[in-house]
Design a protein around this nucleic acid. Structure first.
Lengths: 265, 265
DNA sequence: CGTGGCTTTGATAGAACTCAAGGCTTGTGG
DNA sequence: CCACAAGCCTTGAGTTCTATCAAAGCCACG
């Protein structure tokens, strides 16, 4: 949890503000209100679900998750946070509170002052950007509900991977039908409401069906369009545009797990 | 879809604004911006999921649902709307769009002007009320994700019934551990991602376990606290307070379905 | 009194979970 | 440089949960 150079938050701030068209003055205000970056190691809670108040955080680098753990150790991940995402847009309160968990090594910046400024109506530009984040969070939640409610395990898995790819592309962190995948299958399973074993089998099915290929910490899509169709996932145009070069992975027979494993199928 | 007396929206407006502490001026603005109440019959789409733009609606009376239907007829209900709830708080756009479906006969009022006023920053009070609605919607979505992801069919069913009871109590539409239940089991199943048959069996299980009792279009809770515990549902204090009188249903052996059926235990 | 919508029941099939063990990598210490 | 341990992925077998299919019952309504 050390302190990091303040500048390291710049990239994330840029991602956060992308599409919001902030004026220079707003950008400056935003930079001043953003707290010192802090690092958390993989597996640690940035904010436990029992925290007395809900703080706002900007994810600067690394992947985090908002999660709730039941007394019998069942765990549900409500939302995955990528660099540029913000946790704690609004105080949820009550029984709905989630904890914020570092899935990889994560750097976050305190965003409470930004939230306070937005709530106090200090800046129209920031308020617009904030509203856009809330919109995206709401849309993501609905997508998650659709997945969990009526999708099969196979569809859920493909749909989530596509969502992550699209979000990473939007953040400039993926391209060419390939993306980093630092998450363990346990984490993916907890997103999708599946057991680890079953999720593993779905990933293998995706591979056997020539829909994805994976290197240790990376996943490539062999047929984005077919995967999207089979998973009822409406592909964003940006994701398709980014996919043009159709990388060399297509030819390979290398079909492996994320972080280890051998050829299977 | 006829037009209804303008005054009929008053109650819903009051529910909508409850807790927001609007000034008289804001209340007046709100009333002026709220459109003519319109009636829709049960089963009709107030707004199809293919609508070109997403309009904002205040539910004045009746129950509605935001739902998405897949090409193979699978249907997922993302959110149930009770009187006083608002659909279309923000433009979601993209693939996440849901339709708005009348589950009973429903009266809605056009809320687009209110949304526009909020987005234009016309009133601090209205903006606060609007933000509170967004907060509630977000919390509801997270609850739904938790339910669908990690709860068993039994827990989902009980948890949803408790949520509905709490929301109805908050809106002044239920009390004494008893609430109206105009929804068919098909609708409940589509909320919970279950088949009709299985949902029916879960309801029967709740009855057999002496947790609920039901008359034709009404459900009573025989042991709110035990149900909440078994379903991992944190009960709101208001729901418990409303429950004090422990109505006479407790003694009855009448254990029936919602709209029809016979004794089954 | 027949019809349609909803609920209930039973039987069967399929999906997903659990348990248990083994394999691949990576990192660590001798 | 090798042995070992820990974490993660993979596999197989058996069980539980949930869906599907089909039919029947109940109720409201015309």
């Amino acid at each position: 949890m050390g302190s990091i150079s303040r500048r390291s938050a710049d990239v994330a701030l840029r991602i956060f503000a992308s599409g919001a068209n902030l004026t220079p003055a707003d950008q400056d205000l935003l930079a001043r209100l953003t707290g010192e970056p802090q690092a958390f190691e993989a597996g640690s809670w940035i904010e436990p679900q029992t925290a007395p108040e809900e703080r706002a955080w900007l994810v600067v680098s690394g992947w985090a998750a908002q999660a709730r753990v039941l007394s019998d150790r069942r765990r549900q991940i409500g939302r995955l946070l990528l660099p540029g995402d913000v946790a704690g847009l609004s105080h949820l309160g009550g029984g709905a509170r989630l904890g914020l968990l570092a899935l990889t090594e994560v750097v976050v910046a305190d965003f409470n002052l930004v939230r306070a400024a937005v709530e106090a109506g200090k800046s129209r530009g920031l308020a617009r950007a904030w509203a856009e984040l809330q919109r995206a969070e709401q849309a993501g939640a609905l997508q998650q509900i659709m997945r969990l409610g009526r999708f099969t395990a196979f569809e859920r898995t493909g749909d989530l991977l596509l969502e992550l790819y699209e979000r990473l592309v939007a953040a400039g962190l993926a391209h060419d039908r390939s993306m980093p995948m630092p998450l363990t299958q346990e984490v993916l399973a907890d997103c999708l409401g599946l057991s680890i074993v079953h999720l593993n089998r779905m990933v293998q099915l995706l591979r056997r069906n020539q829909l994805i290929a994976s290197e240790p910490r990376r996943i490539s899509f062999l047929d984005l369009e077919r995967l999207a169709e089979e998973c009822h996932h409406p592909l964003s145009s940006e994701a398709l545009a980014e996919a043009a070069p159709r990388s060399s992975f297509t030819g390979r027979a290398k079909v492996q797990n994320f972080a280890a494993g051998h050829i299977s199928g």
